[in-house]
Design a protein around this nucleic acid. Structure first.
Lengths: 154, 154
DNA sequence: TCTTGAACATTGTATATACAACAATGTCTT
DNA sequence: AAGACATTGTTGTATATACAATGTTCAAGA
């Protein structure tokens, strides 16, 4: 059906591709958190943002994008939805090009409510990854998060 | 701004969350492949599917979903786009509830064309992950792929 | 045989994500 | 001070993703 060389290429890609494996794990892990958090009414994506803003206090959107490596347009759309739910607000900052994102009381309430479900999800995700992959992944992930952190600045 | 207990919860979630780290890595890795493959005209998502179908030969959609842990509706939409590009076709199978997905010549041509860019992306992705995380992730990912493999059946 | 339930794919809807283009503001250089 | 360039966010468009609901076909049991 294919010449042998093409078959070889495809075999190599199937057996060694990093992307398909990372993406598979991402789907599995995200599904675990989304399912655990369903009762609380938040999903992993928005929870990541909410936690980040809550950690740093009022923050420029660019800072959150840099931390999480989110495209600005992606964050913009997510913030839009989170404003509508009353979790976030935009307050004017020093620079008129941008505002600061701040967590509102209902946003903090959601985070508190989410904690037990989050713990559950952590357990399940750890089981999916297994000890070795978990440790390496947490270490690498934390490092990448830190690298995305600009010095100072809101 | 928050009571100390809430601040603790949020700190814990920020420092230990598996989801935010997996999702960050997923965005980075996916971006590397999408960028490398841009010239070829395919993205990581569709390439994953194309490689899978090419590996197994004509396959029931359910099999690909099980392998990659994709929701059937997600696969359906992606296949739709890939049919439109002439990479895939649906051929009737033994069971009238489903057809079989088969790779067409242009689909195989794309995979051949993509190979060099894929190799580039592999290098960059490996650099992002670093040796340890890479090994653990590949091992775990390969295992999860195998677990999604049903016995026999197209 | 008929019916009931399982298996399977698709469609409707919503969110998540990124790229390209744009608009507004700020900074720096001459 | 003026113009060039950088920074920052939003909007238009397309893809990726999942859940809920639906329709069709199959299989198994009464």
């Amino acid at each position: 059906m294919n010449d042998p060389e093409t078959r070889d290429l495809i075999q190599t890609m199937a057996h060694e591709c990093i992307a398909v494996r990372v993406r598979l794990i991402n789907r599995l892990v995200t599904a675990v958190y989304d399912e655990a958090l369903r009762g609380v009414g938040i999903k992993a994506s928005q929870m990541n943002i909410l936690v980040a803003v809550s950690m740093f206090g009022p923050s420029k959107p660019a800072k959150i994008c840099s931390l999480l490596r989110l495209d600005p347009s992606t964050l913009s759309r997510n913030v839009e939805r989170m404003k509508k739910k009353g979790w976030l607000e935009a307050v004017p900052g020093a620079d008129a090009r941008s505002h600061l994102l701040a967590v509102l009381a209902p946003g903090n309430a959601i985070l508190r409510d989410a904690y037990p479900a989050w713990r559950e999800a952590q357990k399940k995700a750890a089981a999916i990854l297994g000890g070795e992959a978990l440790d390496a992944l947490l270490a690498r992930g934390s490092r990448l998060l830190n690298e995305g952190l600009s010095p100072d600045e809101p």
